[in-house]
Amino acid sequence: MTAHSLVAIALRVLRSVFTLILCVTLVFIVLRTAGDPVEQLLPPETPPSVLEEYRVAWGLDRPLYVQYFSYLGRAMTGDLGVSFTNNLPVSAIVAEALPRTLLLGVSALLLASVLGLTFGIIGAMRRGGPVDRGVMAFAVLGYSMPIFFLGIMLILLFALQLRVLPSSGAKTWAHLIMPTVTLALPLAGRIARFARTATLEVLGKQFIRTAHAKGAGQIRVILKHALPNAMVPLLMFYGIEIGLTLSGAVVTEAIFAWPGLGRLLVSSVSARDLPVVQGVILTVTLIIVLSNLVVDILHAFIDPKVSLSSTLGGTR
């Protein structure tokens, strides 16, 4: 790895830190100005004197800038505070929910990749034919159907009518099926469209014609020559999709009562448990920033025409 590359990585890491601080600041301001969490957390007739005691206990009586710098200082050392509702460290609460979201997210990404790449490539190979049109219809249906609607439909069909899958929860692997499919189908639709376009572009290249001329079969040409080249734009596409998948997980986890970060976010927002909300958003931002960094680095390794410093936006 060259010195240029190391500088580029360092610069990118700095940019990522800046993104994180920006995100923390925005979330802090929005949450603190969106209403009094104490009133939200306690029953409607709670006496004002009791409300005030809770405000003092949670530090909400201090000026906003004092609260902000205190939070930022602690966050820098990894201390995300404690939950208003149960006094547990936010880091422990997030750490408990994170593996479930990662399991769901990775499962959905894998399923979406298998479905999306397969349909995308088949569509490209049968361009203009009925198969291609069918595949693209599936793709459009997949990404245009709201996750909320899709999730409910799956529950009604597989849990209520057919009774072959559990409706909610995370007890066994069977519980993973419907949330995964719900999260994966829209993503699969987007991947299919993107993979089709990328494959079509590669299929028109000279090296593909050469491979055919040398007698390589269609499958071999696709797998050995077309797909690796189509992966370069697809990889960048995945970088963006990770963020979308995580945001989709918020809705999916709420529908299926999947106890991950999304579910935690929804419940802590409705309870106005600000430290937990901030902790979850910080974690999700961190995942997105890190995965984009990894994608950029991988891009440089996969595509020999691109240098690490150029993909990371540093100097050549």
Binding site: I155, S167, S168
Partner: peptide, 18 residues
Amino acid sequence: FRAVPELAARVAGLVSNE
């Protein structure tokens, strides 16, 4: 006591004996 925020999931679970 299972936390199931979505009504449709609660109903489906009741009907399917979960």
